Simulated assay, not measured.
Amino acid sequence: MDQAVIPFDWARMLLGEEPPTFLLEILLRTIVIYIYTFGLIRWIGGRSISQLSMVEFLLVIALGSAVGDSLFYPDVPLLHAMLVITVIVLINKGLDYLILWSDKAQTAINGIPNWIVRSGRLNPDQTSDRGIGKAEVLALLRIEGISNLGEVEHAFLEANGDLSVFRAREPIAGMPIVPPHEICPLPHVEPSLREGEPSPKLCCFDCGMLQSRAETACLHCKGEVWTEAKMPDSRLA
């Protein structure tokens, strides 16, 4: 039978039953878990932690666990929890200084933006690097008030998951994204391949690249599905 907990037992509250050298083990445990968890979050990517940097996100998780355990579990000594909290804050402060003074450290810790839209077309390679699909990119663009890819000159998925959109001064014909394709699918169009017959202005359904001549596969992403390109004001191009 477990021994009854004695309230306000200061020896248990501060040190527990472990020897004082156990504090050094806690120091090592905290550093190892912090680095391991940071690596996992870095791998997950910024879109999962929008509005917070990866360091800030990890700080919230680590402090929440350290503080919570010391509040609810009588077998967690306060000094152990305080050491964990102190080490976490010191590590976080050290990373802040690295980010401040070293561009290489900032890139390694926070990552770099991804160029996901350029001149009205999606960049599948950049979106796949961040684990984000076409539908999610189009949803983020609609949140920014974009109704057609032809309106976008550049769009970047920042390291923290935010989307930076730069509108084109002169919109071009592009793929409509309003209403969402899940609600109102775009009709697929076959490119004209007969000699002497003008090709309609089409865009690749996978990346939005405009077709300048009759092709069976997109020159940018190798997609083979085409839809009619339209001007942002919904007029036919």
Rank of each mutant, 00 (worst) to 15 (best):
D2P: 13
A4V: 05
A4K: 09
I6R: 15
M13H: 02
P19N: 12
P19S: 14
F22H: 12
L23K: 11
R29H: 13
R29L: 12
I35C: 13
T37P: 00
G39I: 02
I41L: 10
I41P: 02
W43M: 14
I44L: 15
S50R: 05
V55P: 07
E56F: 09
E56C: 11
L63D: 09
L63F: 11
G64S: 03
S65K: 08
S65C: 01
A66L: 13
V67N: 06
D69E: 13
D69T: 15
S70T: 15
Y73L: 06
V76T: 14
L83D: 05
L83S: 12
T86M: 04
V87K: 13
K93A: 12
L95R: 06
I99L: 01
D103Q: 12
K104F: 09
I109D: 05
I112Q: 14
N114V: 07
W115L: 14
I116S: 12
V117A: 04
R118D: 06
S119A: 12
G120Y: 06
R121G: 00
R121W: 00
D125I: 02
S128K: 05
D129S: 09
R130L: 02
R130F: 01
A135P: 10
A135M: 11
A139F: 08
I146A: 01
I146T: 10
S147F: 00
S147R: 14
L149Q: 03
F156K: 08
L157F: 04
V165N: 07
R167E: 02
I172H: 00
G174V: 08
M175W: 07
E182G: 08
E182H: 10
E182F: 04
C184K: 14
L186K: 03
H188I: 05
P191H: 05
R194L: 09
E197I: 13
K201R: 14
C203M: 05
D206Q: 15
D206N: 15
S212V: 12
A214F: 05
C221H: 06
K222T: 08
G223W: 09
E224N: 15
A229S: 10
L236K: 12
